[in-house]
Amino acid sequence: MGSGDQGGGELSQQTLWLLAVRDRRDREAFACLFDYYAPRLKGMLARSGMPSAATDDLVQDVLLTAWQKAHQFDPARAQASAWIYRIARNRQIDLIRRERRPLPDAVVPEDEDSEPDASQILALDQETGKLREALDRLTPEQRAMIEQAYLGDLTHTEIRQRTGLPLGTIKSRIRLGLERLRHELKELR
């Protein structure tokens, strides 16, 4: 399954499974996604202070949402894990706050296809790979800090300010954002 019809052998296995679900409603690929993400989502929800009785329901909810919304997945903008992370946070906030999390309007597809998709998908994958490497190079304490921010509970944090933003088309901007995040992680050291 997921035999790389998107033109790359370098895409993450999870992204290939999600594409198989998106394009062919492939149940075997969905089962693989379940095996990969269910334990991680359980871990994430446990960390964020959700009672264990509620986590199974939410894990199921997140993965069924992924099955139903797979047509919205764009591998040139996100790897599978980033997309699943977003769904998990959305569902968690909807549940905790009992109100819909405000979500931005979808991007209007225009001048988005000036670059061939396969190269954009690979470029995003490579940039995300570098981000992961930067994450791996952090000290255990620094990594714990990042994990606490992204996986921790949903109580409100103190907000401070910073500025400076990248330019370009949306897809190349995401890659620039990833690059900048990577450098920020590097500067933590």
Partner: peptide, 12 residues
């Protein structure tokens, strides 16, 4: 979306 990529990496 870049921040979400970091969220995905942490989830992994």
């Amino acid at each position: 979306e870049a921040q979400e990529a970091l969220g995905g990496a942490v989830l992994d």
